[in-house]
């Protein structure tokens, strides 16, 4: 089984896993954070409009 080691393919695999998991985590974080951010933005906008 040994003797056919291809470390370039292993590097490529690890890079792909890291990139994909980073994208997945970033999109999940955006999915969780964006609604809260938009709500707080709307709230601040309303306060700003009331002041002016």
């Amino acid at each position: 089984m040994c003797g056919s080691a291809d470390f370039a393919a292993l590097d490529m695999m690890l890079i792909r896993i890291m990139v994909t998991s980073t994208i997945a985590l970033a999109s999940y974080a955006a999915y969780r954070i964006l609604p809260t951010l938009s709500k707080s933005f709307e709230k601040n906008l309303k306060i700003y409009k009331d002041r002016n």
């Binding site: 089984m1 056919s4 291809d6 393919a9 490529m12 695999m13 792909r16 896993i17 994909t20």
Partner: peptide
């Protein structure tokens, strides 16, 4: 995309 055969084989056996 994530698991090329040679990469998996190298990781597990070598």
């Amino acid at each position: 995309f994530l698991f090329p055969f040679k990469g998996v084989s190298t990781l597990m056996h070598d």
